[in-house]
Each structure stands twice: as structure tokens, then as C-alpha cells.
């Protein structure tokens, strides 16, 4: 695959949804159910964004990935900032990898 082609096409499908509605105000008057689904889409995407790739990316050391994301979740759930959450997750993952490898 041509990387340049991918980069520019992805930029297009990112920027069109962001910019176009500002020039089409009627888009805010879609049916309620469609609107509701659109608002829920980011939440629904999170599950598939994390699993199973957070585990499979680590191959046989998948436990490092699992404990890493679990840490990030609980830090943020207990009101930790995204920065602290990511750093704690990284620390746990490194620790598990050092034990496993």
C-alpha cells in the first residue's frame, strides 16, 4: 500500500466530517435516534479499540497489555488525569515485561 495515499485519504475522511457541518447547519436537525447513536459511537468504539489488539500486540506477553490497560482504567476512574493514567499504565507494563521476558 502507498503510505502517502493512505495519509491523504485519511486526512480527507477526518476533515470533511469536521468542517462540512459548519457549512450545513441543517445537519443538527437529524432524527433523534440517529443523533443519539452518533453521540454514543465514541463510547462504543472504545471497546473494539482496546480489545483484542492491546493483548495481541504483545504476543505471548499479553498479560502485560491486559494489566497495562486495566491500570489506566482504574487510575482514570479514581479521578487521575489522563497524563498520570498513561504513565502508571506504562510503568506497570514495563514491570510485567521485565518479569516475563
Amino acid at each position: 500500500m502507498n503510505a502517502m495515499e493512505m495519509i491523504l485519504l485519511c486526512a480527507l475522511v477526518t476533515m470533511v466530517p469536521r468542517i462540512l457541518p459548519l457549512f450545513m447547519p441543517f445537519l443538527s436537525k437529524l432524527p433523534r435516534f440517529v443523533k443519539k447513536c452518533m453521540m454514543l459511537l465514541p463510547v462504543a468504539a472504545l471497546g473494539a479499540l482496546i480489545f483484542p489488539l492491546a493483548l495481541t500486540d504483545f504476543g505471548t506477553e499479553w498479560l502485560a497489555g491486559l494489566l497495562g490497560v486495566t491500570t489506566a482504567f482504574f487510575v482514570s476512574y479514581n479521578k487521575g488525569s489522563m497524563f498520570v493514567s498513561i504513565l502508571s499504565s506504562l510503568a506497570v507494563t514495563v514491570a510485567i515485561l521485565l518479569v516475563l521476558v
Binding site: V43, L46, L49, I50, L53, A54, D57, F58, A64, G65, G68, V69, T70, T71, A72, F73, F74, V75, S76, Y77, N78, G80, M82, S85, I86, S89, L90, T93
Partner: peptide, 14 residues
């Protein structure tokens, strides 16, 4: 590699 998934997990936690 985990930072990617940690970002998503952090959003989920919130």
C-alpha cells in the same frame, strides 16, 4: 505500545 491503549482506557475510566 501500551500508551495508545492506555489513552483509550483512560477515556473509558472517566
Amino acid at each position: 505500545v501500551i500508551t495508545v491503549y492506555a489513552m483509550f482506557a483512560s477515556l473509558l475510566g472517566g
